[in-house]
Design a protein around this nucleic acid. Sequence first.
RNA 1: GGGUCGCUAGCUCAGCGGUAGAGCACUCGGCUUUUAACCGAUUGGUCCUGAGUUCGAAUCUCAGGCGACCCA
Length: 506
Amino acid sequence: MPETRFNRLEQARLEKAEVLRGLGQGPYGLRFDPSHRHAELQRLHADLANGQERDEQVAVAGRVMTRRVMGKLAFFTLLDETGPIQLFIEKATLAAALPDQPEAFTQLTTLVDAGDWIGVSGSLRRTDRGELSVKVSAWQMLTKALQPLPDKWHGLADVEKRYRQRYLDLVVSPGTRETFRRRALLVSGIRRWLDERQFLEIETPVLNAEAGGADARPFTTHHNTLDLPLVLRIATELHLKRLVVGGFERVYELGRIFRNEGVSTRHNPEFTTVEIYQAYADYTDMMALTEELIAAVCQQVCGTTAIEYQGTAIDLTPPWRRATMHELVEQATGLDFNGFSSRGQAAAAMAAAGLEVPESADCVGRLLNEAFEQRVEDTLVQPTFVTDYPVEISPLARAHRSKPGLVERFELFIVGRETANAFSELIDPIDQRRRLEAQQERRAAGDLEAHGVDEDFLHALEVGMPPTGGLGIGIDRLAMLLTDSPSIRDVIAFPLLRPEAAPPVG
RNA sequence: GGGUCGCUAGCUCAGCGGUAGAGCACUCGGCUUUUAACCGAUUGGUCCUGAGUUCGAAUCUCAGGCGACCCA
């Protein structure tokens, strides 16, 4: 006996598809013109009273989510992108409307399963229980689904299945649909806000000979005909700065970047950032821009700037708290890093205060950052601009105008997560070369995340870049915040997972 | 990389050494105001994979796979 690849549930649906073929309409329709969607119907007929009908013909389409058949009357719930529409399906109504199809009611109630896409037309009726419904006088199959829907009450609870089969998650989880709707509003809102302020979005290459603009390991790939090793970008920074050199005073790019790093609730190997560069501005301007931009899109997406994230109230109403890294570390640990003149001195003080002192933190600035990460980061729940970073961990930021050893940089923290990073950009090509060469030495010493020296970028700086403020915002983390999502995988439609089946053993 | 937990019917889950179960879904019958419809009947299994212990393994042990969370 030949083994079928369909189980009995699928087989039953295939048999119904055959019946539909026999009826001349088949399991897959061509086109259909819906006159309304759920949201419009609800708005236009809000005044229809319970038990009343309105003789206006409408056509609606969607996926059948639930079926309740009782003899000669049936209720289906049809789901379109904007919401559910109840179908009021009466045998007598269909028989009167379709005198040449006496079996129309039976066909509709037996050949249509939950999960199928159908289109119907009819008039309007609000049921005695108050549900606005389409009283069906004609129907057609648009797509016969072969797979059954998950449990109509519990939905899809298996998180692995929700990520692997996101299409199913979207079908049965209104919350998932809302998350990705909000993410789309967030992205389009950012673009609109920037476009209205004369920022130009210019796309820069994903494939590069050298990874630059961030501390991260890249994905490597290869161009066949050029026989060229290439890496996927880890940031858009160095190309956008070249555009500023070229004379674009306000540029940005919102797009995907790739970092060959671990996967966690806050990290996905490919993620989305927007980087924004504004000539003649500095990091204080970028702070104001960050506040205004995020507050504006939050207002658009959530309808308020006072939101809740995982049970904690977060107020994104500007202005936001500003504090230097030194101040925050001193408040949290009692250690004044301005007073340390050597690594040894700082390390001893940290150890005495009970902080870990990793070998890799080889200078006072890196130790300061360690202390910050160990004791401060998690505590920055409300939006906080942390300013004035050590030069050693900021190779692309301009030296601070008044604080030796520091740079004009801020990072924005919200719910303990780095959400944005900005500088007064380093535009001095001599200083920039020195900084990148120091990075190169770290890389030679084994730091796989250290920057390389991008000679063409240095050449661009020699051509001359105006004083510029630059800003990068993590879109995924912002999306988590605005959708109250605990994991980055909840805001990425198709997060990276290992293939389900182990590869065949050779 | 380490720790904890999970993987059983299409879905949601129970069973934890002695015949593989429930609810929903499916199929059949009934039902003209339901919305987790209801009532009755039937059907449905690679208990993640492999090895071991045992008279006997979904259950215990070991190894592996995939995932979640926490830590690094």
